[in-house]
Design a protein around this nucleic acid. Structure first.
Length: 879
RNA sequence: GCCCGAGUGGCGGAAUGGCAGACGCAGCGGAUUCAAAAUCCGCCGUUAGAAAUAACUUCGGGGUUCAAGUCCCCGCUCGGGCACCA
C-alpha cells in the first residue's frame, strides 16, 4: 500500500492563532464607529482588570464569555463596541514599591503591557484604539474635572466623622469595603477613627437606587436582592422623649414598631450620641465615661457583631414617654449605632428580642402591650416580636398592630411629639484614601480660608514621581515640596479677600472605585477633550451586556449606578442606569491540598509538589508530598487563589493547547453563571474536538473547495443526506436559542459536537457535506475564532467568516415526515409508534387507536381517556 | 435569626409540564501499532436476568395533572448574602 501523496496539514494552533491576531491588529478589524443607528449597535463590556501582573483563569473565563458574545453579535449584523482598559490605580502597586523598590508607575505599566500581550494572545476582539488606563494622566485629569462638578452640585462634601480605619492599609475604608469587621483586601482589623473625609452623597439617590432594583429586569435577582438589603429602606416613626430636668431637650428615637410604644420601659442611646454628655448627672459621670472608653476601644464589628455581648450603663437621666407620660430610665448601650436612625432606640423588652435580653441582664421591667392575634399564647420566656392585638395601650387598646401603627403615628404627629419617617441603611460614600497611587483630590487648604477647590484651568493635579515608600503613612504627605508647590514651581497660594495666602494641597487621593464608576462611559468617547461627550455617551449607554464576578454586587455595581445618576445631574448624560443586562460569571475552582499548622491555619501545597492518587472514577483519593512521602489533606474544591496554591497559569494552557482550546474549555462545561471546576481532562476534550474539526476539513479540503453547499430543502433529499440537513437546521436552532436565551455556551457547544459526530463524508453527497462543514464553522466562529477563520479561508472564501454571518435555520427542515411517538398507558411508558407528522386532530387520534401496537396495549380494557400531543406523546388512560 | 439560590449516573452537566440522563469527562471492550501515545468503532443509571425483558430511578414526604426533574405545600442538606439596623 502506498501512503497518501500529501499528508493533511496538522493542527498547529500557535501558528494560525498568531497569524490571525497579527491580522486583526494590523487591520483594526474590531474597531467600531459611533454614528450608526443605535438599534444596530451592541455594547458588550467585561469588568476591566487590575494590572496585577498576569492574567488568571478567572480573567480568561470572564473575557472568553464577553468575546464570544461580541463575535456572535457581530455575526448577527450588530456594530459591536467591545473595549478594554485597565483599573490601574490601587494598593498593590504601592505594596510592590515597598517590597521590591519598583516605582508604582513602572510596576503598573510593565504589568499592563504584559497582560495586554496576553489578552491579544487569547485573540479577544477588542477595539484597542479605545484602550486606556485609569492612571493615565488624561483619565485622572478628567476625573478631577468631574469631581469639581460634583462638588459644585453638592454631590461631594467634606465632613469629619468616625471612619473605618484599616490597620493593614493605614487608610480609610467605605462601609462596603469592611467585611466581617475586617479589611476587604488584607483581612486586617478595622477600627473606628475620627477623620475629615471627602464624601459622595450616595444617599441623595437612595430612593432611585432602590427603585432601580425593581426595574433592572436584566440583572440577576441575587445582585438586586443584595443591593436592596444594602440600601435598607425602613419605614417607621420618630418619637420624641422629653428629658426630665432639661427643659426643651428631647431624645428622638427611630422605631419600626410605633404600635409598641406603650410598652417602653427604658431608652437606649449610642455612647457617642451628641446629647449624652449634657444629660449625665455628676453622680453617674464616671461610670458613663468608663463605658464610653470601653466601647471606643473595640471595632464596630466586635462591638455590634453577632458574638458581641450586649452591654450598657444607666446614665442617671430619665425621659418621659409622650404617649402615657411614664418616666423611664435612659441607658447608654453598646449595640446602639450612632449613625443609623437617630442613634437612640426606645426599648420594648416584651416585644424585641434584644431589648428583652438587655432588660433581663440589668433587671429592668418588662411590660406586655401586644397579645398574639386569635387568642394564641405568648411565648413564656422570650419576647413576642410578631404583630398582634394591642393591650394595656390606652385609647389604642384592642386595635391590631397594623392599624395601631398608623393611628399612633398620626396621634404623635398631631401632638407634635413624633412623625412618620423613612430610614436608610445606605450611607454616603467616603472616598478619601491616605495613599500615593490614586487620583489626587483637586483641593487646597488656605491657612485661614479652609478647603478651596482648584480652578479647572489649574487641573490636573499630577502625582510627583520622587516619592519614598516605607510603608508608614502617606508618601504624598511626607513629600518635601509637592503639597506646597504650584504646577509652575511657585509656592502654592489661594486668593482671599485680604490677598493671597499660603496653601497646602489635599494629600489624600480618591478611592479607586471612583475610576471604575465611569470608565464604561469614557470608553464611548476616549478621545474626547472634556470628561465625557454626552452625544456619544447617550448613544452607547446603557451597556447592553456587562459581565463580571458577583463579588462586586454591592461595591462596584452600586457605586457605578450612583455615579451614572450623578453624571446625569451634572450634565454629562441622560441615561440614568449604566448596565441594561448583567451577567455574573461563576468562579474557576480547583481542589486544595494542605496540612494543618500549629496555629490552626493551613499550609497549602501546589499540585506539582504532590503525588496524587485517583480512583477508577477519576476522583482524587489521597495525596502525598513528594518531599517527604507523607500524606496531605485533600480539601474541597475552592476558588483558585494564590494563597491556597490551587491555581493554574492560563499561559501554560495557551502554550500547550492554544488560545482556542483555552477559550472553548472555559465555556464548554457549565453555563456561565455556575462555578467551573478545573479539569485537565476536560481541556484535552476541548482540544480533541477542535482537532477533529480541523482534520475533518483538512482531509476533505479539495472536495470541499470544489463543492457548493446544499441550499435546497431537506424534503427533496433522502437517507443520510436528508438526515444531515435536518441535523444542521437542528444544531443551528439549538445554538441560536442557547445563546439568545441565557448565553448557554455549554449547550451551544454540545450542539456543535453533535453535528460534528454526524459529519461523515463517505456517507454524504459533496454539497450536503459542504453545508454541514460551513454551518459548523460559522457556529464555532465566536467560540474558537482562530480555527474557524483559518479553515474558512482555506475553503477558498475571500471574505472573513464574520462577514458570512451567523447561520439561519428553517424550522420546517428540522423534523422528519414521520414522528416517533412514545405511548404511555396510565402515564407509564409502554412503547413507541411511528405516524405521519401530517396527521392532526381526529384523524391522528383515529390513526393512533388503529395502530396494531396500541390495539395490543389496550387489550380488552375500556379507553377512559386518550391524550395525543402531536409529535410528542400518546397517553392511554385505561380502566 | 432573616432573605436568596441550588440538590439529576462514577464526575461536569442536558431536558418550552410530554421518551430523564443530550454533549463531554472518566471507565470497559475492540481496531490500528513490534509496543506505546495519538486516532477510530462499540458499550456505559440501579437491580434481577445468559438474553429478550421487567421493576426501580431526578434529596425526603405530601399534593395538582392524562402526564412532574419541571408547578404547589412541608421537611432535609449544601452554597451565597444580610444581621444587635431599632
Amino acid at each position: 500500500m502506498t501512503q497518501p501523496q500529501t499528508q493533511p496539514r496538522a493542527y498547529e494552533p500557535a501558528a494560525i492563532e498568531l497569524k490571525w491576531q497579527a491580522h486583526w491588529d494590523a487591520a483594526g478589524t474590531h474597531e467600531v464607529r459611533d454614528d450608526l443607528p443605535r438599534e444596530q449597535c451592541y455594547y458588550v463590556l467585561e469588568m476591566f482588570p487590575y494590572p496585577s501582573g498576569k492574567l488568571h483563569m478567572g480573567h480568561v473565563r470572564n473575557y472568553s464569555i464577553g468575546d464570544a458574545v461580541a463575535r456572535y453579535k457581530r455575526m448577527r449584523g450588530f456594530h459591536v463596541l467591545h473595549p478594554m482598559g485597565w483599573d490601574s490605580f490601587g494598593l498593590p502597586a504601592e505594596q510592590a514599591a515597598i517590597e521590591r523598590g519598583a516605582h508604582p508607575r513602572t510596576w503598573t505599566y510593565d504589568n499592563l503591557a504584559y497582560m495586554r500581550g496576553q489578552l491579544k494572545r487569547l485573540g479577544l476582539s477588542y477595539a484597542w484604539s479605545r484602550e486606556f488606563a485609569t492612571s493615565d494622566p488624561g483619565y485622572a485629569a478628567r476625573e478631577q474635572d468631574i469631581f469639581l462638578d460634583l462638588v459644585e452640585k453638592g454631590l461631594v462634601y467634606r465632613k469629619s466623622s468616625l471612619v473605618n480605619w484599616s490597620t493593614g492599609l493605614n487608610t480609610v475604608l467605605a462601609n462596603e469595603q469592611v467585611i466581617d469587621g475586617k479589611c476587604w483586601r488584607t483581612g486586617m482589623p478595622v477600627i473606628q477613627k475620627e477623620l475629615p473625609q471627602w464624601v459622595m452623597r450616595t444617599t441623595h439617590y437612595a430612593e432611585e437606587l432602590l427603585q432601580g432594583t425593581y426595574e433592572l429586569k436584566g440583572w440577576p435577582d441575587a445582585v438586586l436582592t443584595q443591593q436592596r438589603n444594602w440600601i435598607g429602606k425602613s419605614l417607621g416613626a420618630e418619637i420624641d422623649f422629653a428629658v426630665e430636668g432639661h427643659a426643651g431637650v428631647k431624645i428622638t428615637v427611630f422605631t419600626t414598631r410605633p404600635d409598641t410604644v406603650f410598652g417602653v420601659t427604658f431608652l437606649s442611646i449610642a455612647p457617642e450620641h451628641a446629647l449624652l454628655d449634657g444629660l449625665v448627672p455628676t453622680s453617674h459621670r464616671a461610670a458613663v465615661e468608663a463605658f464610653k472608653a470601653e466601647t471606643r476601644a473595640v471595632s464596630a464589628h466586635d462591638r455590634t457583631g453577632d458574638t458581641a455581648e450586649k452591654k450598657g450603663v444607666f446614665t442617671g437621666a430619665h425621659v418621659i414617654n409622650p404617649v402615657n407620660g411614664e418616666r423611664v430610665q435612659l441607658w447608654a448601650a453598646n449595640f446602639v449605632v450612632a449613625d443609623y436612625g437617630t442613634g437612640a432606640v426606645m426599648a420594648v423588652p416584651a416585644h424585641d428580642t434584644r431589648d428583652f435580653e438587655f432588660a433581663r441582664k440589668y433587671g429592668i421591667a418588662i411590660k406586655t402591650v401586644i397579645a398574639p392575634a386569635g387568642g394564641a399564647a405568648a411565648p413564656a420566656d422570650a419576647a413576642f416580636t410578631e404583630a398582634g392585638v394591642l393591650v394595656d395601650s390606652g385609647p389604642f387598646t384592642g386595635q391590631d398592630s397594623a392599624a395601631a401603627k398608623t393611628a399612633i403615628t398620626a396621634w404623635l404627629q398631631e401632638s407634635g411629639t413624633g412623625r412618620q419617617t423613612i430610614t436608610w441603611r445606605l450611607r454616603d460614600w467616603g472616598i478619601s484614601r491616605q495613599r500615593y497611587w490614586g487620583n489626587p483630590i483637586p483641593f487646597v487648604y488656605g491657612e485661614t480660608s479652609g478647603a478651596v477647590p482648584l480652578r479647572k484651568q489649574d487641573l490636573p493635579v499630577t502625582l510627583p514621581d520622587d516619592v519614598t515608600f516605607d510603608g508608614i503613612g502617606n508618601p504624598l504627605e511626607k513629600h518635601p515640596t509637592w503639597a506646597t508647590t504650584a504646577a509652575d514651581g511657585t509656592p502654592l497660594s489661594v486668593r482671599t479677600a485680604h490677598g493671597p495666602e499660603a496653601a497646602r494641597r489635599e494629600t489624600d487621593t480618591m478611592d479607586t472605585f471612583m475610576e471604575s464608576s465611569w470608565y464604561f462611559a469614557r470608553f464611548t468617547c476616549p478621545d474626547f477633550a472634556g470628561p465625557l461627550e454626552q452625544k456619544r455617551v447617550d448613544h452607547w449607554l446603557p451597556v447592553d451586556l456587562y459581565i463580571g464576578g458577583i463579588e462586586h454586587a454591592v461595591l462596584h455595581l452600586l457605586y457605578a449606578r450612583f455615579f451614572q445618576k450623578a453624571l446625569c445631574d451634572i450634565g454629562y448624560s441622560t441615561v440614568r442606569e449604566p448596565f441594561k443586562r448583567l451577567l455574573c460569571q461563576g468562579m474557576v475552582c480547583m481542589e486544595t491540598f494542605s496540612r494543618p499548622l500549629a496555629d490552626g491555619k493551613k499550609q497549602y501545597f501546589y499540585p506539582d509538589e504532590l503525588d496524587i492518587d485517583k480512583d477508577d472514577s477519576g476522583r482524587i483519593g489521597a495525596a502525598r508530598l513528594k518531599a517527604d512521602g507523607q500524606p496531605v489533606d485533600v480539601g474541597r474544591v475552592e476558588k483558585m487563589s494564590k494563597s491556597k496554591r490551587n491555581t493554574v497559569d492560563p499561559q501554560r494552557l495557551i502554550d500547550t493547547y492554544g488560545a482556542d482550546t483555552a477559550r472553548l474549555f472555559v465555556l464548554s462545561d457549565v453555563p456561565p453563571e455556575l462555578d467551573v471546576q478545573w479539569s485537565e481532562n476536560s481541556v484535552r476534550g476541548s482540544n480533541r474536538f477542535l482537532k477533529r474539526v480541523w482534520v475533518l476539513v483538512q482531509a476533505n479540503l479539495a472536495a470541499l473547495q470544489a463543492a457548493t453547499p446544499f441550499a435546497g430543502h431537506a424534503k427533496d433529499l433522502a437517507g443520510a443526506d436528508q438526515a444531515l440537513v435536518r441535523k444542521v437546521h437542528w444544531a443551528v436552532k439549538r445554538a441560536t436559542d442557547a445563546l439568545e436565551k441565557d448565553f448557554a455556551f455549554n449547550t451551544a457547544i454540545a450542539a456543535c459536537m453533535e453535528l460534528t459526530n454526524e459529519l461523515k463524508p463517505e456517507a454524504l453527497s459533496a454539497p450536503v457535506f459542504a453545508l454541514g462543514v460551513t454551518s459548523l464553522l460559522r457556529l464555532l466562529a465566536p467560540l474558537a475564532p482562530h480555527l474557524a477563520h483559518e479553515l474558512w479561508a482555506e475553503l477558498g472564501n475571500a471574505a472573513d467568516i464574520t462577514a458570512a454571518g451567523w447561520p439561519a435555520y428553517d424550522a420546517t427542515q428540522i423534523d422528519a415526515d414521520e414522528a416517533e411517538m412514545p405511548v404511555q398507558v396510565n402515564g407509564k411508558m409502554k412503547g413507541k409508534i411511528v405516524l405521519p407528522r401530517s396527521l392532526a386532530g381526529a384523524a391522528l387520534e383515529a390513526a393512533v387507536l388503529a395502530h396494531a401496537d396500541v390495539v395490543a396495549l389496550i387489550g380488552d380494557r375500556p379507553v377512559r381517556k386518550l391524550v395525543v400531543v402531536p409529535g410528542k406523546i400518546v397517553n392511554l388512560v385505561l380502566g
